[in-house]
């Protein structure tokens, strides 16, 4: 099939789609964790990017000092992220549930602490996760992509599918949705809110750290590696409608695709402009986002 105007060769469009879906999957994973916490607790955790970054460092540490097997390092990072989530909920966000401005202040403080803590522990140089097999390039005709592209897509698909099954089938998952819809009703049926909030934050932290551990081998591990996913993940949440897990997933994928394809018709530096212009246009046409409903969100 020939493109009408040959300005974008079809192969380049497809190659950028592969890149875009891969980055979009990472944004989606990031956004899902954030939207989960927002949906259940009405807490906006801007330190979610710091947990993502911690996932990258945990993965580097696991590969270097625990086990050179990447799946083991992924599990290690994910478990570490869950633990970080638990600590953040217990020590910080449990006290700030009703207070959005203090959540933002606390998040910024946490980001500073995390980034400087990492500088202290690991130094200012970006770290490379030693996994040459993940960076091996696969060829599909003219198309080339790394093994890690596939690993990311598979891991995100498994994580999102597992989350979906958890939220729709399991006792605790349904209780999380119940608490997000009516916290008082949850209390009268015996769901202890504090427990639900702890589980929500653990899950959210696990997903963020998994994201960092997935992106680490492709890019480098450095203190600011969570900033970009934070920006794009937030955009994905707003684009998706500030509500559902699926909105966040599709919003993340849409942003990844859009920014990758944007590099074909605009200078690379303009891709954020394209993404945010698309966000503004979407919100002008659909103030609730692409998949939002009039009702305030639930996961």
């Amino acid at each position: 099939m020939a493109f009408p105007a040959m300005a974008f060769p079809a192969m380049a469009v497809i190659a950028q789609a592969v890149n875009g879906i891969m980055m979009g999957a990472v944004y989606a994973l990031f956004a899902v964790g954030m939207v989960l916490v927002f949906g259940v607790m009405r807490v906006l955790n801007f330190a979610h990017g710091a947990v993502f970054m911690a996932g990258g460092y945990l993965c580097w540490f696991a590969m270097a000092h625990v086990s050179p097997i990447y799946p083991v390092a992924l599990l290690f990072s994910t478990a570490g992220g869950a633990a970080i989530g638990l600590v953040l909920e217990r020590l910080v966000f449990r006290r700030l549930r009703e207070n959005l401005s203090m959540q933002i202040v606390a998040s910024l403080g946490l980001i500073l602490m995390a980034q400087n803590g990492v500088l202290l522990l690991f130094g200012a140089d970006a770290l490379q996760i030693e996994a040459p097999s993940l960076r091996r390039v696969l060829r599909l005709g003219e198309l080339g992509f790394t093994v890690q592209h596939l690993v990311i897509l598979a891991a995100v698909a498994v994580a999102v599918a597992s989350l979906h099954v958890f939220l729709s089938r399991s006792r605790l998952g349904i209780a999380m949705r119940a608490a997000s819809q009516d916290i008082q009703a949850a209390r009268v049926v015996g769901i202890a809110p504090d427990r639900v909030f702890a589980i929500t934050f653990a899950l959210s932290g696990a997903l963020a750290a998994l994201g960092g551990a997935l992106l680490g081998p492709l890019f480098l591990v450095f203190p600011g590696m969570g900033d970009l996913p934070l920006l794009k993940g937030l955009t994905a949440i707003v684009l998706g409608g500030m509500g559902s897990v699926w909105g966040a997933v599709l919003g993340g994928l849409a942003i990844g695709l859009l920014e990758a394809e944007a590099t074909l018709f605009a200078p690379t530096d303009y891709r954020d402009l394209v993404v945010f212009a698309a966000l503004i246009a979407t919100l002008l046409l659909r103030p609730r986002g692409l998949f939002g409903t009039a009702i305030r969100g639930e996961p």
Binding site: I174, R177, D182, Q184, A185, V189, I191, E298
Partner: peptide, 24 residues
């Protein structure tokens, strides 16, 4: 205790609401 006003979980199904009634 059934509190005042609507205290069902609106976006859970009837079956899921009942399941949450037996959360404990």
């Amino acid at each position: 205790f059934i509190p005042q006003g609507r205290s069902i979980f609106p976006r859970l199904t009837v079956a899921e609401n009942l399941r949450m009634g037996g959360f404990l």
